[in-house]
């Protein structure tokens, strides 16, 4: 079954219904097409109604933090970890569009290509296209599409957070902030709003000198601080477990419910 054709707009109700059915059955091309349609035309959000009632309660994990702290590498390791548990994993990796040209260099998945052949993993790069808040405007819609397609864990990597780019809070069940030693002290983290939004703070590159100080400083402000070395995988299984432990198991809320709360 091939997804409905490339030139699809909301005017094509039948085509959209077909596409929605294909998404529900987990067809990867259909998932990709629908995300593109949602990115390109806000009017296509009407298609989301066709997905309603089929969401399966995915866990949405936001990963935010400073540029260069290791967000993509942490996400890559988390994908491996959840795959070992047999969960289907979707990744939405957001990078910034150039305010000058509108173009974007989307390179997060360089660190994730080991999963490119795993049919239980879907990775999509999204550009912000001028939208502020750390995500793309359609990121929430894309998460809903992935949930409908049967992905059980959805990891959303924000742009490297500066200050006030915290839309992820409204979308994710659990927010993980990734910091690294030497990228600013805990006052910087407070200023950036990271500690307000993060349920779990990760000190990545935890083998660098200065990691102990960073951990100690952050623990004064945040109860849930973990150390990882994402390049080797150290600390990742603990992080994966902490994330799922944080996610309330009762009263499971779907992506759409979380977004409406």
């Amino acid at each position: 079954m091939s997804p409905a054709g490339p030139h699809l707009f909301m005017r094509d109700i039948e085509g959209m219904a077909t596409l929605a059915e294909q998404v529900k059955s987990g067809n990867v091309r259909a998932v990709s097409r629908l995300i593109t349609l949602l990115e390109n035309h806000r009017d296509n959000r009407q298609a989301l109604h066709l997905l309603n009632g089929t969401s399966r309660g995915a866990t949405v994990i936001g990963v935010t933090g400073y540029p260069g702290a290791g967000k993509s590498t942490v996400v890559n390791r988390l994908v491996s970890c959840y795959r070992r548990q047999g969960l289907k994993v979707g990744v939405l990796a957001v990078d910034i569009s150039s305010p000058v040209t509108g173009g974007a260099l989307l390179g997060d998945r360089i660190r994730m290509q080991e999963h490119a052949l795993d049919h239980g993993v879907y990775i999509r790069s999204m550009a912000t296209r001028g939208y502020h808040g750390g995500l793309a405007q359609a990121t929430g819609d894309a998460a809903l599409v992935l949930e409908t397609a049967g992905y059980e864990v959805i990891l959303i990597e924000t742009i490297g957070v500066g200050q006030n780019e915290i839309d992820i809070v409204d979308l994710a069940h659990v927010v993980v902030a990734v910091v690294a030693p030497g990228l600013g002290d805990e006052v910087q983290a407070m200023k950036a709003g990271l500690l307000e939004v993060a349920h779990i703070v990760v000190v990545n590159k935890g083998d660098l000198s200065g990691a102990d100080n960073t951990l100690r400083d952050l623990r004064e402000w945040c109860p849930n601080v973990l150390r990882t070395v994402a390049t080797t995988g150290e600390g990742i299984s603990e992080l994966a477990a902490a994330i799922l432990a944080h996610r309330p198991s009762s009263g499971v809320s779907s992506v759409s419910e979380v977004r409406n709360r």
Partner: peptide
Amino acid sequence: LRDAGMEVIYTG
């Protein structure tokens, strides 16, 4: 290509 306004997915 990025400078020409495209979204470039670079795989490495």
